[in-house]
Write a protein that binds this DNA or RNA. Structure first.
Lengths: 350, 350
DNA sequence: AATTAGCACTCTCGCTTGCCGAGTGCTAAC
DNA sequence: GTTAGCACTCGGCAAGCGAGAGTGCTAATT
């Protein structure tokens, strides 16, 4: 029950046309625009067969055909060809990412911006998941008699800190000892691992004053670790979808926007997806049943993995979008390869 | 040309009714619901006068009246009475803010969430503007042979840091010296002030290696200062507006959402507003001409000032919203008053 | 002089009707 | 297997109509 060459051609034509115009496509217009050497009637017969096989649907009896999720899936898996980016887009990407090379989060945000600008869809980018990140050292620093800063530094230069106010006074010395103790205990362990351990126990100590200080600091330590594990999510171009005919109804648009209001939930969903370019179409998503979601991963220095993605209607230019995302993630991974030391100074140009 | 007592009553009634139902209100329904002791005909006459004075408008000949911006302004300035919050709302606010007392940004975000939950409008909250913040100390810390962390700490416990990769090797000693130099130079100066000074000159030094290191660090120092000056903006409940009849049309909704896509621009706008509770209605805003914007300020330890706000249609419950915002900002200021040391440990209950 | 009742008038909204055009599905001819 | 021809279906649009809400004016009432 494979499709014939002609059926594939027709399906391809229908998808192309529908992606372009967002309107059910009829046999006659296919026959006219894409000369397949057959009459509309023949195309009608083939379309009928394709519909029976589940590749096309009918909004109503006397309307043209619309590709189904299954059709898009077939297209993505078998029919689609890589597209070369336009020189303009390539330049745009190269320039924009280069301008903020040394500021991590900003680069990531720029990536999201680029993605939505070029594709005209909604896009997002996430900083890398840091559960594999290992702790380099922990430091406690005095601010004033009541306030100290707790700082956790990861091997790859990741830093997170909290300011905390103590109930008990502290001495410079006790801070230093506690810092050292904590560093010795946690150096080289991953954040995940550190969080799983029984933290309060880990830095138990005999000296009365010290254990009080530790008792004060540890809850914040835990929360700071958690904080360090959080990935940042940048979303861009959400309003692009208002320009698409599929979101002309306010209800659709609302559903769409509400989804993104739940950033935490969304982040979890995206983290759970496989690495590499992943396309999920329509019903393949558990929510967003009429959307397509494409994600891709970039790498930071080998270990850490971050994600970017676009969300749009199932009707989208799969070939272009995936090509752009591939180019973009390659570029990001290249930018974040830490082997060359030249990442600061030279290149600031807002 | 002051309004008569009766005209005020009628205007008040129209506003109340329209705020409730979002539909032009007619003379008959006013006469019925709010017994003013006069007939619809009389009310009609008064309405006609009110319209002439610019307090009411007519969507079309045979529709009821709708309050104008001017009417809302009059209402806010003269007619409106403070509302007492419900015990439930008070409890909600107290609990939610207490649960994250020691984590600044999270508290701010919670404030925005609360505001949108209680008012059912779109809301935002900004961390305090830090241009008045003074520098406490600056520190450079080694991570590995190529990487160091630059950290700026403000008097009120504000911390910002960047990880930077150097082109030249460094020694532990040179880092310490540079840290000290910078701290001596900048301690006690405000961020604004520090940025204005000729930073490169400020830490000029004779020793060759040192000046190389300094040259490497200073551009990042500037950017970190700038970064520290940035306020964080948290927006919540944007999708609430989809439930309002005034945004039933996709175009309106789009305009609204697009406004918030430009976070930077929006932040600037909001920072420029006066302190205290500020209400701007419809045309009084330069964009968002059919919205009302209410902002209020909270204080951190006297010096720093942050803002929260709501955005909605001009038709909103001004009395409730302003009361809630007052309560909320008072509560925030209280939370951030740094005189009592009890801010950590005791109270985490996610 | 202020208020009110009465009535004609206006405008929106929802409903129905009829028509056009696009597109199908079937049959019969090629 | 392909195509031409034709009846049929359905959405979309415009026109027409009635109901309902509300005004604005005038004349009567207090």
């Amino acid at each position: 029950m494979d499709l014939s060459e002609r059926q594939l051609q027709i399906l391809q034509a229908i998808i192309t046309d529908y992606v372009e115009n967002a309107e059910p496509v009829g046999s006659r217009s296919i026959a006219k625009k894409y000369d397949l050497g057959v009459s509309p009637a023949t195309i009608r017969n083939e379309m009928s067969d394709l519909e029976e096989m589940g590749y096309l649907t009918h909004p109503h009896t006397s309307a043209g055909r619309v590709p189904s999720d299954k059709a898009y899936r077939l297209y993505v898996n078998n029919l689609m060809k890589r597209k070369n980016l336009s020189a303009k887009d390539k330049r745009l990407i190269n320039e924009r990412l280069a301008s903020s090379r040394d500021e991590f989060d900003r680069t990531i945000r720029h990536a999201a911006e680029l993605l939505s600008e070029i594709t005209n869809l909604a896009s997002f980018a996430m900083t890398p998941a840091t559960n594999e990140e290992t702790i380099s050292f922990i430091r406690l620093m005095p601010v004033d008699e009541r306030t100290i800063i707790l700082m956790i530094v990861g091997e790859s230069g990741n830093v997170t800190n909290t300011t905390l106010r103590l109930q008990v006074p502290y001495t410079q010395e006790s801070l230093e000892i506690l810092s050292k103790n904590m560093t010795v205990n946690y150096k080289g362990r991953t954040l995940d691992d550190a969080l799983k351990s029984d933290i309060i126990e880990d830095v138990g100590t005999d000296i009365e004053a010290m254990s009080q200080l530790a008792g004060n600091v540890m809850p914040s330590f835990i929360r700071t670790l958690e904080d360090m594990l959080n990935v940042n999510l940048y979303m861009e171009g959400m309003t692009n979808i208002f320009n698409l005919p599929e979101y002309a109804s306010i209800d659709r648009a609302r559903d769409f926007m509400e989804l993104f209001a739940q950033k935490d939930w969304f982040t979890q969903k995206m983290l759970a997806r496989d690495d590499g370019v992943v396309v999920t179409i329509g019903e393949e998503n558990d929510s967003l049943k009429d959307c397509t979601l494409i994600t891709a991963t970039y790498h930071v220095d080998g270990k850490l993995v971050g994600k970017i993605g676009v969300i749009g209607p199932t009707r989208m230019k799969y070939d272009e979008v995936t090509s752009i995302m591939e180019y973009l993630t390659n570029n990001l991974s290249e930018t974040f390869r830490l082997t060359d030391g030249n990442t600061d100074g030279k290149d600031e140009e807002e």
